[in-house]
Write a protein that binds this DNA or RNA. Structure first.
Lengths: 163, 163
DNA sequence: CTTACACCTTGTAGTCGCTACAAGGTCAAC
DNA sequence: GTTGACCTTGTAGCGACTACAAGGTGTAAG
C-alpha cells in the first residue's frame, strides 16, 4: 500500500531543451529509470518487474550505456498503470486495458466497459464482506467491557466459540 | 476466500467411547488430520502448514503409525485460529492471541484488546480506502455513456490522466 | 585524470497464507 | 491379498511486488 517516492533530482540538467513535445518518444530528454520512477510514482524495481512481466516494453539502451533510457510515452504508460492499479485492477486486467488502449482507436470500447464493470462488482463484493467483518469484530470487541483477566476475556471467548 | 470442506467420514468408529471429555487431549478418540480438518473447517494442507509455522504444536504420532493423531484440544485450537482468520487477523496476530490465551489465565487481557482494536482500526482504514476507490471507479465508469470507440473512451481517458 | 559517489545493472530470495501437485507409504475393510 | 481411501514428505506456485548483494556506469568536482 505504501508507494515509496524516491528523491531523484537530476544533477545536471542539459541546457536548452525547453520545448517538451507531448508526442516525444525516447528522442527528447531521455530519463533514467529512477527519474521515470519519480515521475510516475513507482519504484525502479517495480518498473523492472513490469518489464519482465511484459506490461511495459523493453526499454531502449541508448548509446554505449547499459542504462535503460525512457521518454515521455513511457512515463505516460506507467502513470496509466499506476492509476489502474490504484483503482484495484489486477496486473492482468491492466494488461487487457493497455492492449485495448494500444489497439485500433476505432475499435469499440465495450470491452473496456466490461472489464471495469466486472471489477466494480468485485469491489462491491469485497466492500460488503469487509463491512460484515467489521460489524462482527466490533461486536466481539464491545463484549469486552471491564473485563481484566485473560480467563474471562470475552474476545478470546468469542474466538473460542463461546457465544 | 473459499475454504474447502472435505468429506471425511470415519470408516470404522471404535466402539464403546461415548463419554466425550471436554478436557481430553489426544488420549480419547484420536483424529486423523483429515478428520480434524473436517471438524475445524480447514484443509489438511493448512494444518500441516500451521504446524510448520509453529501456530499449532507438532502432532503426536501414536503407536507404530506415521500418521498424525489429534484430540479435542487440537480441534478447539484450530477453530480458534479459523475464527480469528475469518475476522481478518493475520497469522502473526493469531499467534499473539494464542500466546495470550495459552498464558496465565490471571494475566490482564488488555493486550488482547490492544490487538483487536488495532486490527479494527486497520479494517476501518481498508474500508474507507475501498469505499473511496469504489466512488472513483463508479465515476470513471459512468463517464462512459454512449461512447463507442476506444479513441473516445472515457474510462481509458480517465486512466490516462484526462480529467 | 582521479576520485567520489549516486545511481544503475543482473540475479536471487523473501513476503503472506496458503494451494497444488508428485511419488510413495499406511491403514482398514473385504 | 487386494483394493482404495487416506496419509506422508517435499517442492513449486500464486500476486505483486520488495529487498538485498555484488558489481558496473555516469557525472561532477578537485
Amino acid at each position: 500500500m505504501t508507494r515509496a517516492r524516491i528523491a531523484n533530482v537530476r544533477r545536471g540538467a542539459p541546457p536548452g531543451e525547453g520545448a517538451t513535445d507531448p508526442r516525444a518518444g525516447v528522442a527528447e530528454a531521455p530519463l533514467t529509470i529512477g527519474e521515470l520512477a519519480t515521475q510516475s510514482g513507482v519504484t525502479p524495481e517495480t518498473i523492472r518487474y513490469y518489464e519482465r512481466e511484459g506490461v511495459v516494453p523493453e526499454a531502449a539502451r541508448e548509446g554505449a550505456g547499459r542504462y535503460r533510457r525512457y521518454g515521455a510515452a513511457d512515463a505516460e504508460r506507467l502513470r496509466f498503470i499506476r492509476r489502474a492499479r490504484d483503482l484495484g485492477f489486477s496486473l492482468g486486467e491492466v494488461r487487457e486495458l493497455l492492449a485495448l488502449a494500444d489497439g485500433n482507436p476505432r475499435d469499440p470500447c465495450c470491452d473496456v466497459n466490461r472489464i471495469a464493470r466486472a471489477h466494480l462488482a468485485q469491489v462491491d463484493a469485497k466492500l460488503a464482506q469487509l463491512a460484515a467483518l467489521r460489524t462482527e469484530l466490533d461486536r466481539v470487541i464491545n463484549a469486552c467491557d471491564g473485563v481484566v483477566a485473560v480467563a474471562e476475556c470475552r474476545i478470546l471467548g468469542a474466538l473460542s466459540g463461546v457465544t
